[in-house]
């Protein structure tokens, strides 16, 4: 079973392109986080959503999209919010489509529907959002990722849907 954690990096050509645009930004790691398995059926599991989309509730402090090293904060996004209560602060991906329908990048209504239909057991009180432009891998891993993981645990998440923008 442990062998599946030792898979080689997939789609290396994509990362080569990223490294061409932002030299040195591709971080390789030799250690892998072990996969976690579901402890109860999906229909009984509380789901949280974690996204790098820069989506945030209207009126919260905008993500710092100009800092050259990145923003290592996250925003709680109440899972009950409607699309018009959300906005995007993010420079590094096209937001034209998402500004028309935020679900294409932050599928909050689809997840609300899945919970109402009983496909999933429910949603955590909050979802979590940050911006994906982070040039300091240590802060990303040891501060931001840990902060979000702690917050997800406090919200009693059984499963987490992770979505890079």
């Amino acid at each position: 079973m442990t062998e599946i954690y030792k898979q080689k990096q997939l789609r290396t050509e994509v990362w080569n392109t990223v490294n061409e645009r932002y030299p040195g930004s591709m971080i390789s790691k030799d250690d892998y986080v072990p996969l976690s398995f579901l402890k109860k059926p999906l229909s009984e599991s509380k789901l949280t959503f974690i996204s790098t989309s820069g989506v945030q509730p209207v009126g919260t402090l905008p993500f710092d999209t100009v800092h050259p090293i990145g923003d290592y904060t996250y925003r709680k996004v109440p899972s009950s919010l409607k699309p018009d209560e959300l906005e995007i602060h993010q420079l590094k991906y096209p937001t034209v489509g998402a500004n028309q329908d935020i679900n294409v990048i932050f599928p909050i209504e689809r997840l609300q529907e899945l919970a109402q239909e009983g496909v999933i057991g429910g949603l955590t009180e909050n979802f979590f959002s940050f911006i994906g432009y982070n040039m300091d891998p240590e802060q990303l891993e040891q501060k931001l990722a840990e902060d979000i993981a702690d917050a997800a645990v406090r919200d009693h998440a059984d499963i987490a849907l992770l979505s890079p923008a």
Partner: peptide, 8 residues
Amino acid sequence: MSLPYLKE
């Protein structure tokens, strides 16, 4: 570019 790359 990563921070280590810039610092170097």
